[in-house]
């Protein structure tokens, strides 16, 4: 009951936001995209125990594929955008499925290292490929609507994506999929010994992650209005690292944790950029160290350890009448 009120309040806030604070629409678009980053990273890193440092690859693929479709397909603006987003998501999922069957065979730290190079390599490839503008990047086509309409339009797209990501993951975690990825996290060898199709679940999880990241990339390309291969699309040293930190800060392996982590992190980061100019990178580095040292299990992870009953972990009196075999 309390949760449904909270959800309704969050939804109402997201819908009313452009009217309430029109000057902050673009800023807010980035914030909801951060939530998508954090949630999709947590699907593997938190729920499945596979720390990926290469998820930004799918984001960049979605961004470039969408921009190329928008540039080369000559339909109306909304039609090419829709086609671009769909193509971006499809391309990201396809790459995740192909890479996943190989890289997801690696375990633990080996997987983390294996993914580390993905984003960097993709950034270098894009920077050297003239078809997508090379190092000069790409500019998505002009939004045809009224002045200022672009910000509102893409804000709503980004917010809808974040909400869709949240509810899709919530639904997945509530069923066998969630149980299976949690089992893989806790003891993959045991999961195999129990006959689980672990590779199938791992690849599917990465594809879900890539799907939402691909759409996110397609949207952000249009929000920013300019695509730089290393700074916007395959931004491993910013987005790629932040998505990990936000999930850890909020609480790995929880549903609300990544959301909370993304909001806190993004606001803090923007405050640094505003008030600590020239020192913002230092402050951010300091924040990262603080997060890792003081919140190793994140805000919600800490709360769960402190009040396990609130999270449903409690001993229940056995009912003798229920005796059965």
């Amino acid at each position: 009951m309390k949760r449904s009120i909270l959800r309704a309040a969050v939804l109402a806030f997201l819908i009313a936001f452009p009217a309430l604070l029109p000057a902050w629409r673009t800023q807010m678009s980035y914030l909801v995209i951060m939530i998508v980053f954090s949630l999709t990273w947590d699907l593997l890193g938190g729920q499945m125990g596979y720390n990926s440092f290469g998820n930004v690859l799918f984001f960049g693929i979605g961004m470039y594929v969408c921009a190329v479709v928008q540039r080369d397909a000559h339909f109306s603006y909304p039609a090419t955008l829709a086609l671009g987003i769909a193509a971006g998501a499809a391309a990201a999922v396809a790459v995740a499925a192909i890479l996943g069957s190989g890289i997801l065979g690696l375990r633990g730290h080996y997987f983390a290292i294996g993914t580390l190079g993905l984003g960097i390599a993709a950034g270098e490839l894009a920077a050297g490929w003239d078809f997508v503008g090379g190092g000069g990047g790409m500019v998505p086509p002009q939004y045809p609507g009224a002045l200022g309409g672009r910000e509102t339009f893409f804000y709503y797209l980004a917010a809808a994506l974040a909400v869709a990501t949240f509810f899709t993951l919530r639904w997945l975690y509530g069923g066998r999929f969630g149980l299976a990825v949690n089992a893989i996290r806790d003891d993959e060898d045991k999961a195999e010994a129990m006959g689980l199709w672990t590779t199938r679940y791992k690849t599917a999880a990465w594809c879900v992650s890539a799907f939402f990241l691909g759409i996110g990339g397609a949207i952000v390309g249009n929000v920013s209005g300019f695509i730089d291969p290393r700074e916007t699309a395959f931004a491993g040293s910013t987005y790629g690292v932040w998505m990990v930190l936000m999930a850890i800060l909020g609480g790995k392996g929880t549903l609300w944790g990544p959301v909370l982590g993304a909001v806190i992190f993004h606001i803090t980061k923007e405050l640094f950029w505003t008030y600590l100019l020239d020192w913002q990178q230092v402050a951010l580095g300091f924040l990262i160290v603080v997060i890792v040292i003081f919140f190793p299990v994140g805000i919600l992870g800490w709360a769960r350890e402190k009040w396990p009953e609130k999270f449903g972990h409690r001993v229940e009196e056995a009912k003798p009448a229920e005796a059965s075999g």
Binding site: D187, D189, K190, G253
Partner: peptide, 8 residues
């Protein structure tokens, strides 16, 4: 023993 430790 091998169980899934963080799950109920």
């Amino acid at each position: 023993t091998r169980i899934y430790g963080k799950m109920t």
